[in-house]
C-alpha cells in the first residue's frame, strides 16, 4: 500500500496513461469507484467488457470529452489538457466534417493550432506518404467508401503527432469487408508509427487480434478483471486467427468474461 502511494506522484517512464482513484457516477448510478489503471507505452491495448460497463466512457474521460467526479488521469505524466491526443470516433459519418474536403478534414487539427497553410499541406502529404495512402483527398468525405472514411478519420487523429491514439469502436459502423481493410491499415500504422493505441471494442475477436494487451472490465461498478497479454508476432494475418496462441488467448478471455457475467 505504502509502495503504491510512493509511486503515485511520478508516472513510471513506460506508462503512457495513468489513472488513479477515478470516480464517476451517472445520475446516482456509480460507474467507476476508485478506479486505477496504468497503460504501458508502445503497446496496442484493447478494452473489452460487458455492455454498459463504461468502456467508451473510460476513454472519453481519459481524452477529456466527458468530465469525471474525482481522481487523476495523466498522459505521459502530464494532465491531459497539456498532452496531445488523437481520437477516432465510432461513426465516421457523424465525426468527419462533410463541408470540408478530405484533405481539409485531415489538416483540421493543425489548422486549429494555427499552423500555416503550407506547413499543413507538407505535414498531411508526409503523413499520407508514410502510411502509403492512395486517395484523392480533394474530394468530400461522403464520396468515399465507409472504410476509406474511417481511414480518413484515423489520419486526422494522427496528423497532429499525438502521444497516444484512442479508438472508440472504430469498426462498429463498418461492414465485414471494410473492417478487414481498416484493421490491416491500422496495424500497419501501429507498426510504422510506434504509437501507443487504446481501443474500445465490443467484439472479443477484434479485441484480441490487434492487441498486445487485452483489458477485461467487469460489470458496474467497473473494475479491471484481468490484463491478458497476447504476443503473437506482427504483422498479424488471417492465419493468426487460427493459430493455437490466438485460440487459447481468446478462449481464456471468454472464460473470464463469462465468469464475470455470472456474478
Amino acid at each position: 500500500m505504502v509502495e503504491v502511494n510512493a509511486h503515485t506522484r511520478i508516472a513510471p517512464p513506460d506508462a503512457c496513461v495513468q489513472i488513479e482513484g477515478l470516480c464517476k457516477s451517472f445520475s446516482g448510478q456509480v460507474l467507476y469507484e476508485d478506479f486505477d489503471l496504468t497503460l504501458p507505452n508502445h503497446q496496442f491495448v484493447s478494452i473489452f467488457g460487458p455492455n454498459g460497463c463504461g468502456k467508451s466512457t473510460l476513454i472519453n474521460m481519459i481524452s477529456g470529452l466527458i468530465p469525471f467526479d474525482r481522481g487523476t488521469i495523466l498522459i505521459n505524466g502530464k494532465p491531459m489538457r497539456r498532452s496531445r491526443i488523437g481520437y477516432v470516433f465510432q461513426n465516421y459519418r457523424d465525426s468527419l466534417f462533410p463541408w470540408m474536403s478530405a484533405f481539409d478534414n485531415i489538416a483540421y487539427p493543425l489548422k486549429v493550432k494555427g499552423m500555416s497553410q503550407r506547413d499543413c499541406r507538407d505535414r498531411v502529404e508526409q503523413l499520407i506518404e508514410t502510411f502509403n495512402i492512395r486517395l484523392d483527398l480533394k474530394r468530400y468525405p461522403y464520396s468515399f467508401s465507409g472504410g476509406q472514411q474511417q481511414l480518413i478519420s484515423i489520419l486526422r487523429a494522427l496528423v497532429a503527432d499525438p502521444e497516444v491514439l484512442f479508438l472508440d469502436e472504430p469498426f462498429s459502423a463498418l461492414d465485414f469487408e471494410t473492417t478487414l481493410f481498416v484493421r490491416d491499415k491500422l496495424q500497419e500504422i501501429f507498426m510504422t508509427a510506434n504509437l501507443p493505441m487504446l481501443m474500445v471494442v465490443h467484439n472479443l475477436e477484434e479485441a484480441v487480434y490487434l492487441a498486445d494487451t487485452v483489458l477485461l472490465l467487469s460489470k458496474r461498478p467497473t473494475h479491471l478483471v484481468a490484463r491478458v497479454p497476447f504476443d503473437a508476432p506482427r504483422p498479424r494475418t488471417p492465419d493468426t486467427l487460427s493459430s493455437p496462441e490466438f485460440i487459447s488467448v481468446s478462449r481464456h478471455c471468454l472464460d473470464i468474461f463469462q465468469e464475470e457475467m455470472r456474478k
Binding site: G64, Y87, D94, S95, W99, Y108, P109, V112, A160
Partner: peptide, 25 residues
Amino acid sequence: KRSRILAAKVMGANRWQTFRDVLLW
C-alpha cells in the same frame, strides 16, 4: 450533431473555432 462538436473539441478547437468551423456549417 454533438459528435461533430466533440470531434472539434478533442482536436483542440476552442469555442470560437468550434462555432466558426462546426456550428455555423
